[in-house]
Deep mutational scan, measured.
Amino acid sequence: MDETGKELVLALYDYQEKSPREVTMKKGDILTLLNSTNKDWWKVEVKITVNGKTYERQGAVPAAYVKKL
């Protein structure tokens, strides 16, 4: 869990989004888990830093590609 009490997951593999509802992640990324009720796809929040600014993006990733921490 992070400092706000939200559950975290670890990306076990790289994943490139294939639709606007998904998010890209790299192996080793730590993501915030938002919903894991679907056994195949979990909704997560990814933090992306671009030019020193951090953005948050929500989307789905394959459940088999992440592990709860």
Rank of each mutant, 00 (worst) to 15 (best):
V61G: 01
V66F: 04
W42D: 00
N38Y: 06
I30S: 01
R21N: 15
Y55S: 10
P20L: 08
N35W: 04
I48E: 09
Q16N: 12
Y65S: 10
S19L: 06
T37P: 03
N35H: 07
T24A: 04
D40C: 14
D40Y: 15
K27H: 05
Q58L: 06
S19Q: 06
K27E: 05
K27T: 05
N35E: 15
L69D: 01
I48G: 04
I48T: 09
D2T: 13
V9T: 01
R57I: 09
P20K: 09
E22V: 03
D40M: 11
L10N: 02
N51V: 04
V61K: 00
Y65K: 07
N51L: 08
L10T: 06
K67T: 13
E22W: 03
L34A: 02
K68P: 08
Q58E: 08
L31W: 02
S36E: 15
D2R: 14
D29K: 02
V61A: 02
L12Q: 02
I30K: 04
D29C: 08
P62F: 07
W42H: 01
Q16M: 12
V9R: 01
N35F: 04
N51M: 09
K47N: 08
L34M: 06
T54W: 08
Y15W: 09
G59M: 08
T4P: 13
T32R: 13
Y55P: 00
E56R: 15
A63T: 04
E45H: 06
V44W: 01
Y55A: 08
K6N: 10
T4H: 13
K18Y: 03
L34D: 01
A11C: 12
A64P: 06
D2S: 13
I30M: 06
G28R: 02
V23Y: 02
V46Q: 11
V23P: 01
K67H: 09
N35S: 13
D29A: 05
V66H: 02
E3G: 13
D40P: 00
A63Y: 03
P20C: 10
L8G: 01
K39D: 10
M1V: 12
G59R: 01
V23W: 03
E7V: 14
E3S: 12
T24P: 06
D40F: 15
Y55V: 13
K39S: 12
V9G: 10
T49S: 10
N35R: 06
K67I: 14
Y15H: 02
V66I: 07
E17F: 08
I30E: 02
L31I: 06
V61H: 01
A63V: 05
Y55T: 11
T24K: 03
M1T: 13
E56F: 15
Y13Q: 12
V50Q: 09
A60P: 01
L69K: 04
T24V: 03
E56V: 15
K6F: 12
G5H: 14
V46F: 06
W41C: 06
V50M: 11
N38P: 04
Q16Y: 13
M1I: 13
I30D: 01
N51I: 02
D29W: 10
G5F: 12
V46K: 12
T37D: 15
S19M: 05
D2V: 14
T54M: 09
T37I: 09
G28C: 07
W42Y: 07
V9S: 01
T32I: 14
R21I: 10
L31S: 01
L31Q: 00
R57Y: 07
A60N: 15
K39Q: 10
Q16E: 13
W41V: 02
M25P: 01
E45P: 00
V66M: 06
L31E: 01
G59K: 00
I48Q: 07
K6R: 14
K47R: 12
T32D: 03
K6Q: 11
K18G: 07
K53P: 02
V9Y: 05
K18N: 09
T37C: 15
E7R: 10
L34F: 03
N51S: 09
Y15V: 01
D14H: 04
Y65N: 06
I48L: 09
T54A: 07
T32K: 11
T37L: 09
V23E: 00
K18L: 09
I30F: 04
T49K: 09
D40I: 14
N35L: 06
E22L: 04
L69Q: 03
Y55D: 05
L34G: 01
Y65I: 08
A63Q: 03
V9K: 02
E22S: 05
E56W: 15
V46Y: 08
R57N: 03
E3Q: 14
G52E: 06
E56Y: 15
S19F: 05
K43E: 15
E22P: 04
G59N: 00
K67R: 12
K68H: 07
W41Q: 01
T32N: 06
V46W: 06
Q16T: 14
N51C: 10
V61S: 00
P62E: 04
N51A: 10
K53W: 08
K47A: 09
Y15I: 01
V44T: 00
M1L: 12
T24C: 04
E7A: 11
T54P: 08
Y65D: 05
E3R: 12
K39F: 07
T54Q: 11
G59Q: 01
Y55Q: 09
Y15M: 00
G59E: 01
T32G: 06
L10W: 05
A60V: 15
Y13N: 08
S36R: 08
P62Q: 03
E56K: 15
E17T: 07
P62K: 05
L69N: 00
T32L: 14
L12S: 02
Y55W: 09
R57P: 02
E7N: 10
Y55C: 11
N35A: 10
R57W: 07
V9W: 05
K68M: 10
G52C: 08
Y65G: 07
N38C: 10
T54Y: 07
N38I: 04
A63M: 04
N35G: 07
P62V: 05
D2K: 14
P62M: 05
K47W: 08
S36C: 13
G5T: 13
N38F: 05
